[in-house]
Amino acid sequence: MSGDHPSSVISARVRHVEALLESRGLLDEGEIDGRIDEFLAGGSPANGARITARAWVDPGFAERLLADANEAIREVGLSMAGGLQEQRLKVVANTADEHNVVVCTLCSCYPIALLGPSPGWYKSEAYRSRVVRDPRGVLREFGLELPETTRISVWDASAESRYMVVPRRPEGTEGLSEEQLAALVTRKGLIGTAAV
């Protein structure tokens, strides 16, 4: 990340604005700390991993998930409503012929309420500018070499619409439980910059 200002300067600026807003009655004491705790206890890639594992073991769920993710994730006790407003979630699944990858070229739109904070690289100009022009090259930088025959679809998120990728189920995992399968899934897999 760029940024030339020393942390102490900007930290003082943030404290000043907070104190000003408290004095004007626009912030309650302890409100900020409460919101931070709530956020950190909220969304997590583990939610996406659970959804993925269920989709791998239950084809009916997978079908409902791809058709209407907002509805389907309620079946596993999750929702997109945890943030400032409920956003539409579209889930796309990788296949032998097609790989999906998610970006927000304009800013940093990401299913935060479901998956927690996005990684720094997702928010970087480098990723946002390049993945739409050269997805194969960018995926290679992440160590993901796809066959030339695999089609790559890039999904550009917006203020109202967020995306999540369901990676392909790795071979040799037939004997694993749903919980064990979920443990294989990474945040990068859910964005599409890793195979799983």
């Binding site: 720094g120 480098a126 022009r133």
Partner: peptide
């Protein structure tokens, strides 16, 4: 300026 999709000149992606 935020509309960087496809813009050239940005460096390699840095993962932390």
């Amino acid at each position: 300026i935020n509309d960087v999709g496809g813009m050239a000149g940005f460096p390699a992606i840095a993962e932390e």
